[in-house]
Design a protein around this nucleic acid. Sequence first.
DNA 1: CCGGAACGATAACATATGTTATCAAGTTCA
DNA 2: TGAACTTGATAACATATGTTATCGTTCCGG
Lengths: 194, 194
Amino acid sequence: MLFHFKTQFPTLNPFWDKYLEFQTRLEVPAKTILLEEGKVSQQYIFIEKGCVRAFFNNNGIDKTVQFFFENEGLTSLDSFVNNTPSLSSIETLEPSVVYLLPKQYVTQLLEELRHEPDFMQMILQIFARRQIHYMNEFVSFIRDTPEVRYQRLLNERPHIVQRVAQHYIASYLGVSTVHLSRIKSKLAKGKSHF
Amino acid sequence: MLFHFKTQFPTLNPFWDKYLEFQTRLEVPAKTILLEEGKVSQQYIFIEKGCVRAFFNNNGIDKTVQFFFENEGLTSLDSFVNNTPSLSSIETLEPSVVYLLPKQYVTQLLEELRHEPDFMQMILQIFARRQIHYMNEFVSFIRDTPEVRYQRLLNERPHIVQRVAQHYIASYLGVSTVHLSRIKSKLAKGKSHF
DNA sequence: CCGGAACGATAACATATGTTATCAAGTTCA
DNA sequence: TGAACTTGATAACATATGTTATCGTTCCGG
């Protein structure tokens, strides 16, 4: 969310690098909770290896909100910015290597960055991207059937389907595991007209 | 989206005020298109009176994405930031009074603001809010039935239900007009146990 | 003030999706 | 390695939702 902009705004590189030393490297197995629902997010998480998901508990039913993979960074934004209890948890789905940067350093980094010429462009890009991402997720529910949403996922982010267990994907798509299975078998039949 | 932060960050007030003179006041009837799908957004829109919706056309079917009312500001963020064709249109739902601030002045204003002490807090608040809004919309589709989504709308943003025609709300909730009508009559029956 | 258009309710039917249960195959771990 | 757990497929049935059509009411422009 922050650090993949290295290549896009080269003049800002020295700033990222200055904070490398404040990161904690963590090597963890699958199903490790990195942030627990209800706790306040204190760190920015960067994934070097593996993958994680954000999810929340709804009446005992586990709902996945988002997946993250190598070279992506994340945090529970509301919790991080407003010091409020996080509405979602974050856990690893595979054995992973992550780096944690405490909030105070993120704040410090942003303070340093904001006087740089490229800063405004960068910050607008970063936030616009995230916002557009969530907006698209939302629009997809208004516009597409679950079948189409699955196809889009398959086309646009195939690594998710490949690496993540199906029940997580089902809840992410907003359907039951049974129905996702039906969708898959229907699509498989469709393809077999060779 | 920008200008309602006046009261929250008083030290920044003089900056907003400096740009008032560059706004164009527009008095328009209902169903006036303020931004057309496919065109590049060139202005930030602030609503003084009335209400508008953002929507897009999906295979001839009109889908509403969001509603805006008095003292709210909006733009097609992706289009505005990246100079790309807007994916959605914006139109008034009632006779309205809006102010338009051309993009160049928004950019200029942000450039002036970013050196102010409160800037980082403000910009994080603004973007975090928007992002959390869209994330919540999205999560609601994963978590809630259409009936619950309608009830939440009724509880959390009753002005929308009061002022906006039902078929716009139906597409916003992701259901057909017929089903929204069913939901309403079901809820009405539930209430009549007096 | 009239007439057409927009709006909302409802019925009848078709389709999509959820729920529960069962089974087979793969995985994990003591 | 074997037992428990996880994962995914499928069937049968129940419920939710979409589609089309009809009707009465309201709204709005000429």
